[in-house]
Design a binder for these strands. Structure first.
Lengths: 150, 150
DNA sequence: CTCTATACAGACTTAATCCTCTTAATACTC
DNA sequence: GAGTATTAAGAGGATTAAGTCTGTATAGAG
């Protein structure tokens, strides 16, 4: 469904969102990679994609790191997904048929495009503000063990 | 979403279904691979999965090939998908969190599991009889060019 | 019985994804 | 200005998915 890079990107985004609600600093990638248990260099590359997509601002040097450029309620999971995995997910024919579309639908086009649209709407409706808040409500220590222990 | 092998498996299944409604012979994989423009050996491996899953019966030798063991209206796209890609698609957490489930949901678990369920129902509701009939109704020469020219 | 057309099996190759490493460049601290 | 903590950039390695090849077994045809 989503690439590993994309799920890491979402997790990292939720982490950054959570940190930035606590204090307004840049969040260093090194700390983040430890807490999320994701390879530092790999995470760096993923976050660079978010930076060059204009979602994150980055700062080098001590006290550097990354943070979101816009308020958290203006950034959605869709923004993250598109920046990393692109739009193909919401456009591809289930059967991989090249000409499939509304005009020349494949055998499952109508149902499938409806599901794709629902998926799109789901991602679009999830802001970082709302979603990162939910993480704390639910206290997901099972999944993100080190986030909760700093 | 689906692996290449799985989409090829579905296309081949629709082809077999279509052929077997015309005459009751085994469908040779060589002919199928030409018509669908899929590598013969690769397609063979994929169809072996359907055979060992009990969906297809196969016959060696001249006039041999594969055909479905059950009537077409009793076989769904879900059967094909599960035989090739397994059930993970309908079980995995969107964020890849290991403990995510109804008891300890991740931040998007509820919405995501609803979508997964809809996907499952979509596949389950699509029988080969209905779906392969649709292919001819819609005359999908754009996508399956060689199917229509034999 | 032999020949041929087919499926079966598994090793191998290629391509894509995932991840790591090394070397910059830059900003802060003293 | 030197030292250090950080991101940036890109090469390279590891793993998995995708695809190819070679050979074997088997069923039918003559």
């Amino acid at each position: 469904m989503l690439s590993k890079a994309c799920t890491y990107g979402i997790l990292a985004s939720l982490y950054i969102a959570r940190e930035s609600r606590k204090r307004d600093n840049y969040v260093p990638i090194g700390q983040m990679s430890e807490k999320l248990n994701i390879s530092f260099h790999f995470l760096t590359k993923i976050l660079q994609q978010l930076t060059s997509a204009g979602l994150l601002a980055s700062m080098k040097g001590p006290k550097g790191g990354v943070r979101f450029k816009k308020p958290l309620h203006e950034i959605t999971l869709l923004d993250i997904v598109i920046a990393i995995d692109g739009m193909e997910l919401f456009q591809e024919c289930l059967l991989g048929l090249p000409g499939c579309g509304d005009e020349e639908p494949c055998a499952v086009h109508n149902e499938w495009s409806k599901l794709r649209e629902e998926t799109y709407v789901l991602f679009k409706g999830k802001t970082l503000a709302e979603t990162s808040a939910k993480i704390e409500d639910l206290n997901l220590r099972f999944a993100l063990p080190k986030i909760m222990t700093d």
